[in-house]
Computed example of a mutant assay.
Amino acid sequence: MDIQLCILLQNPPAGVDFGIQKGSGNRYETIQTQRSDGLDMQFRLTIQLKNDPQKINEPRFSGPFVQGTPASQFIYIDVGEFAGQVGGWSRRVKIPLSGVTWDMITQLSHHSAACLTTSFPGTAKDGSPICATVKPFEGWKVDMLSN
């Protein structure tokens, strides 16, 4: 089953490139690269459900955007040079896939226009672009897609 993710990066610093990491290690590419103008940025991507509720307690995911171990999966947003920008920051933002429940998966399967949505600030306390694991991470919620 395909799972749609909608990620909202709130008010990241202007002039910095952000994009979704596809692949891992030295063999990755950054897609959906956007240069921030200081306003919210949105990313949409599709991951795959890897297992079923009869076999394991928590949903597990696969696909070229999913990083980490089965017990600690996440998505990367590349920042600055990691997103292909020349000069500036070289960072990644780690967005946990934790907290997704089988109830959420069931809701998604019943509504083709639904996605898992999360949002978080794009600027760190010191005014630089966010990096490392999103904290505090408020998790994912099921939301209807809008065009």
Rank of each mutant, 00 (worst) to 15 (best):
N26D: 14
D40C: 01
R27A: 10
N57R: 11
P13N: 10
D40W: 06
S146L: 08
K50L: 13
D2C: 06
S62P: 01
F120M: 06
V79R: 05
L5Y: 02
G88N: 14
Q73R: 07
P136R: 02
E58S: 12
K55N: 12
N11C: 13
N147G: 10
V16D: 03
Q32I: 03
V86G: 04
A14S: 07
G139I: 03
K125N: 05
C6G: 15
L39G: 07
L39M: 05
Q32W: 04
I77A: 02
P53I: 13
D2F: 08
D40P: 01
G68F: 06
Y76L: 13
T123K: 15
R35Q: 11
K94R: 11
R91N: 15
R91F: 14
G15P: 03
E138P: 01
G87W: 07
I77K: 03
P121N: 14
P96D: 02
M41N: 07
P12L: 00
A83M: 01
F43Y: 09
N11F: 13
G80T: 04
Q42L: 04
F43H: 00
D52T: 07
A132W: 11
G68L: 07
N147D: 13
S24E: 11
V79M: 00
E138C: 08
N57L: 15
D78W: 07
I3D: 06
M104V: 02
L116F: 00
E58H: 06
E29T: 13
G122V: 02
H111G: 05
A83F: 11
D78P: 01
K141F: 13
G68H: 02
D78R: 03
S24Y: 09
R91S: 14
T69E: 15
I75L: 06
W102N: 04
E138D: 09
V86I: 13
T101I: 01
G15R: 00
T46K: 10
S62K: 01
G127P: 03
S146I: 04
Y28C: 10
G15L: 00
A83P: 03
T118R: 10
D78A: 14
I75P: 05
L116G: 02
G139E: 01
S36W: 03
I130C: 08
D17S: 09
G38Q: 09
Q34P: 12
T106S: 07
M1N: 08
G25V: 12
Q10G: 10
I95P: 03
D37Q: 04
H110K: 10
R92S: 04
P64L: 14
G15Y: 00
Q4A: 06
L108K: 03
F61V: 02
K50Y: 13
I47S: 05
W102D: 10
T69P: 07
F74Q: 09
D126H: 02
S62Q: 07
F120G: 04
I20V: 05
V86P: 11
P136F: 01
K55F: 12
E29F: 07
K135C: 15
Q67I: 05
F74C: 09
V93D: 03
G139Y: 00
S109M: 10
P96N: 02
F74V: 08
S36Q: 01
V100W: 04
L49E: 05
G23V: 05
K135V: 15
G88D: 12
S119D: 12
M144W: 15
G63C: 05
A114S: 15
Q10S: 14
P53R: 01
T106H: 12
M1Y: 15
G122I: 02
W140S: 07
L45Y: 08
D143S: 09
Q10E: 15
C131I: 07
S128N: 11
